[in-house]
Structures are given as C-alpha cells and as structure tokens.
C-alpha cells in the first residue's frame, strides 16, 4: 500500500522536511493544528507533529492509537525537544509492564 507523509509544525522548520519529500502544513497555534490534523488524518499514513503542538493534541493522538494508520510521530521542533515523546514512552511502559525499565536509572 502506498501512503503519503506529512508534517505539521510551527514556523519555517517544516520547510526542511518539505525538501525531503514530506508535505508540510504550517500551523502556528494549537486550535489550527488540531483542525489540520483532523482534516488530513484520513489521507496520510504518517504524520509528523512537532513536540510543542503534540502536547496540546494528546487526546487526539491517543485516539489514533486504536488503528494501525495514521501514525502520529512527535518530532522535535526548531527549539529542540520538549520531552513529550519520552513522557509518552514512560506512560506506555507503566501501563503495560507496571514498572519503568528504561528511565529510572538515568534519574538517579
């Protein structure tokens, strides 16, 4: 199956992805990003979403985890990572295993 990829992000950083062959959607605030994500979700297989926007759209991302596609991938934005993806990983680990097997060593 062929699919398309897209990125939703703030500012000019997304243009670099556009050069790499990913459709870019520039959204400067959360409501706009939410609307865009809802609109484009059915037609793309992989959607990259910058960390700062992903934090506000957590509920929508969780809902999309029910089926295999679309895949929403949080990526660091221009200002670097906010740690959203790590928090998600930790959350999933605690949900599935009950313990944190990756990060607890780093915190000490």
């Amino acid at each position: 199956m062929k699919g398309k990829t897209a990125i939703i992000g703030r500012g000019d950083g997304v243009l670099a992805f556009k050069a790499g062959g990913v459709d870019a959607y520039v959204c400067d605030d959360e409501p706009k990003a939410r609307a865009t994500l809802k609109k484009i979700a059915p037609s793309y297989s992989v959607i990259f979403l910058t960390d700062d926007l992903a934090e506000g759209l957590d509920d929508l991302i969780n809902r999309m985890n029910e089926s295999a596609y679309p895949i929403i991938v949080p990526v660091p934005g221009e200002n670097g990572s906010t740690g959203y993806a790590k928090t998600k990983m930790k959350e999933q680990m605690e949900r599935a295993l009950g313990v944190d097997i990756l990060f607890q060593r780093e915190e000490r």
Partner: peptide, 29 residues
C-alpha cells in the same frame, strides 16, 4: 536539508516501532 532528508528514513522506522509499542501497550492492558 540533506541531513534532515537522511533522518526521514530513520523517522519512518521510528514511526513503525513507536506505533507498535503504543498499540501493544493498549492491548497488554
């Protein structure tokens, strides 16, 4: 731009793994 284009391949792999992990976590629960 070249650097980011290279990362995109890896990002696709990450997308697959990350989604699998998320779905497995739900199913395990």
């Amino acid at each position: 731009v070249k650097k980011i284009s290279k990362v995109i391949d890896k990002l696709m792999l990450l997308a697959e793994v990350e989604k699998t992990v998320a779905m497995l976590a739900i199913e395990i629960e």
